[in-house]
């Protein structure tokens, strides 16, 4: 296959709770050789991170956070649509609990470059290492990591946004 042979990204049917379509794509598989090659990619640079599962291009962080690990979602507008239609509510860092969502947002262009689900939250003043997250790092592996220990924290300017599913549209 060359770049011109590729006729378009494979998609699955994916909609929000309110029925709006969400753009997504599934990409080609890595070879076993490449899976092994990236086995130890991060173990040195991220000492407090535990990696699980094999590298996989089939889903990314947003596909893990919002689409049950079935596909890739990569448009920030689509993430905002999901947050709105599925009734997520923005919360403060101090309010975070297990199951809440964290977004890593680039200050420059508003790109939601990463997302994850909180698996541990102990609130100590100014110390983000006590919030732990499970997330998928692009085509790499799933990781359980302190919220501030990723490559996504290394952009010069970014912010963390926290969200909780409220289901307010189901209230009577």
């Amino acid at each position: 296959m060359n770049l011109f042979d590729y006729t378009g990204n494979k998609k699955i049917e994916l909609v929000t709770a309110k029925g709006r379509a969400i753009d997504n794509y599934q990409v080609f598989e890595f070879s076993a050789y490449e899976r092994n090659k990236f086995k130890d990619y991060t173990s040195v640079r991220f000492p407090n991170t535990i990696f699980k599962c094999s590298p996989s291009p089939e889903y990314n962080c947003h596909g893990m956070s919002f689409a049950s690990r079935r596909t890739n979602i990569d448009k920030s507008n689509d993430i905002r649509i999901i947050l709105n239609d599925d009734c997520y509510e923005k919360i403060d860092e101090k309010q975070t609990m297990i199951g809440d969502i964290v977004l890593y947002v680039s200050e420059g262009d508003g790109d939601i470059m990463h997302s994850g689900t909180i698996v541990f939250a102990e609130h100590k003043s100014g110390d983000l290492s006590h919030i732990k997250v499970i997330s998928k790092w692009g085509k790499y592996r799933e990781a359980i990591h302190p919220v501030n220990e990723t490559d996504y924290n290394k952009l010069s300017s970014y912010r963390l946004e926290y969200y909780r599913l409220t289901h307010t549209h189901y209230e009577v």
């Binding site: 420059g108 262009d109 790109d111 470059m113 998928k136 085509k139 996504y152 952009l155």
Partner: peptide
Amino acid sequence: KNIYLISNTAPFLIE
């Protein structure tokens, strides 16, 4: 390759 591997979005890859 490391950058590509962990990129979730095109703007992040470009940046």
